[in-house]
């Protein structure tokens, strides 16, 4: 019995780690799709320059009608110029290889210009949130 008990405890010790961890039960294949970048702002602007970090950005699309987007991605850095009448709310849709990795993406506003193309002197109150 003593030998049997020891064998059982050893097996349990080996198996228990295999049952630990939250993702241990998900499929291993990535889920390509779009993340949404949402703007918080005290202003209405005519143009924004947005900087996104995160891997594998394939495309950037406007999230609202009437908005024009031009972007350039180099490595994990994507710079996006956004033109239109831009207020608070969904701003961009970013195509990524695995939306489950949303937490790996971040975005900030680098420049803002008002509707007369004058630069904003401060970007206080501007924030971007990236989520699925």
């Amino acid at each position: 019995m003593k030998l049997f008990t020891r064998a059982a405890l050893l097996l349990a010790a080996v198996l228990l780690p295999a049952c630990g961890g939250g993702d241990a039960g998900e499929p291993a294949t990535p889920q390509p799709g779009d993340l949404t970048v949402t703007l918080a702002t005290p202003n209405t602007d005519g143009a924004l320059l947005v900087f996104i970090t995160g891997p594998g950005v394939a495309a950037v699309q406007p999230a609202a009608p009437g908005v024009v987007v031009r972007s350039r991605t180099q490595g994990t850095a994507t710079t996006v110029a956004v033109f239109g009448t831009l207020g608070a709310g969904p701003l961009l849709r970013v195509s990524v290889p695995d939306v489950r990795q949303a937490k790996q993406y971040a975005a900030v506003v680098r420049e803002a210009a008002d509707l007369q193309n004058a630069p904003r002197a401060t970007l206080a109150g501007y924030a971007l949130e990236v989520d699925r």
Binding site: A47, R72, Q74, T79, E111, A113, N117
Partner: peptide, 30 residues
């Protein structure tokens, strides 16, 4: 967006026809 190839005169033009703040920014491009 970070890969500029314009000459200094061309960049100055962009700024002057925009907000003339001494650099090319998103307002100038708009």
């Amino acid at each position: 967006l970070g890969a500029g190839t314009l000459t200094a005169d061309q960049a100055r033009f962009l700024d002057l026809q925009g907000n003339a703040n001494g650099k090319v920014d998103v307002g100038d491009v708009r």
